[in-house]
Amino acid sequence: MELVVNQKHYRLEVHADRMLLWVLRDDLGLTGSKYGCGEGHCGACTVLIDGAPTRSCVTLANSVAGKPITTIEGLAQNGHLHPLQEAFIQADAMQCGYCTPGMIVSGAGLLKKNPHPTQAEIKEAMEGNVCRCGTYPRIVAAVQMAARTAGGQHA
C-alpha cells in the first residue's frame, strides 16, 4: 500500500482493518494528529484527504491509499507557518493545545473551500471539533483573522 502524506510517498504493509490515525502516529511517527475519542466525535484526529477535513480515527488507512493526505505537520510550507497557524498564536486560541492540531486542520480545510467564511459558517463547519478548555471564541477569531491576512489565498 502507498500513502501520500504531506507530499511524501510511503510504502507500507498495513493490515486492512487499521485506522489511518494509528498508522500516521505509530508507523509514520506523525503524532500531531491526536486520539480523542476514536469515534469521530471530537475532531482531534482531523486530517485533510483530497483537501477535505476527515476523521482519521474512523478512516481505514487502506481506503485512502494513494490519495493526498495533509496532516498538521504538512501545513507549514518552507518553514513558513500556515496563516491559520499564525492566527492561532496571535489570537491565543489554545490552552492545553491538545485539540489545536485538529482545530487548525479543520479550519484550514474550511478556508480552502470557503476563503471568507462567516462566523456562522465557521461554527457550523467546526461543530465536530471539541475544545474542552473552551477556547472556541478565540478559534473563531483565529479563522477570521487568517481569512483576512491570507486574502483568501491558502495552500
Partner: peptide, 11 residues
C-alpha cells in the same frame, strides 16, 4: 504570548 504556542500549532 504562550511560550509553547509554536509547538502546539505545528503539532
Amino acid at each position: 504570548p504562550k511560550t509553547t504556542a509554536r509547538d502546539m500549532v505545528t503539532g
